[in-house]
Simulated assay, not measured.
Amino acid sequence: MNNEQLKQLKAMVEEAGDLPEAAKVRLLEILGQQEAEVESSQPEGASEVQGKLLSSVEEFEAAHPEATSFMGRLATTLANMGI
């Protein structure tokens, strides 16, 4: 779950009128813990690293179109087999 999803879930719990107060408090505590874990696991600049990785993959695909095509067909075949 990413941080945005956690915020949406937290808002839904806060707005829920049919939940007992003790359950709301406990759910909000759990969501707070999850938010802290998500924030600590994603260092600042993670989007930069992700961008560099995507760029490297695109360069590989351009440099090796036959290998990329083969891997795509292989993945499709395995998916069709249920693997």
Rank of each mutant, 00 (worst) to 15 (best):
S69H: 14
A67G: 07
E29W: 00
T68N: 11
T68L: 07
S56G: 11
G45C: 01
I83C: 00
E58Y: 15
E29T: 04
E59P: 14
Q50D: 03
G82L: 02
A79L: 01
M1T: 03
Q50F: 05
T76V: 08
M81D: 05
V38T: 05
E4I: 12
F70A: 12
A75C: 05
K52L: 11
E66A: 15
S56L: 12
V49C: 00
E44K: 08
T68C: 09
G45Q: 01
P43E: 12
A46V: 09
T76G: 06
H64L: 14
T77R: 14
E4V: 11
L78H: 02
E66Q: 14
S69R: 14
L19D: 03
S40C: 08
T76M: 08
E4S: 07
G51A: 11
A36W: 04
A63M: 13
P43S: 11
P65S: 15
F60W: 14
K24F: 00
P65I: 15
E35G: 06
P65A: 15
G45F: 03
A79Y: 04
E35M: 13
V25K: 11
M12G: 07
S47N: 09
I30G: 01
E61K: 15
G82K: 02
E44S: 10
S69A: 14
M81V: 01
E48R: 07
E58D: 15
G32H: 01
Q34N: 04
L31E: 04
E21L: 00
L74Y: 09
G82N: 08
K52I: 06
A11T: 06
L9C: 00
A75K: 13
K7G: 05
A22Y: 06
V57E: 14
V38H: 02
A16S: 03
P20H: 08
E39R: 03
A75G: 06
S56M: 12
E4F: 12
Q33D: 06
K7M: 13
E59R: 15
I30Q: 10
G51V: 01
G32Q: 05
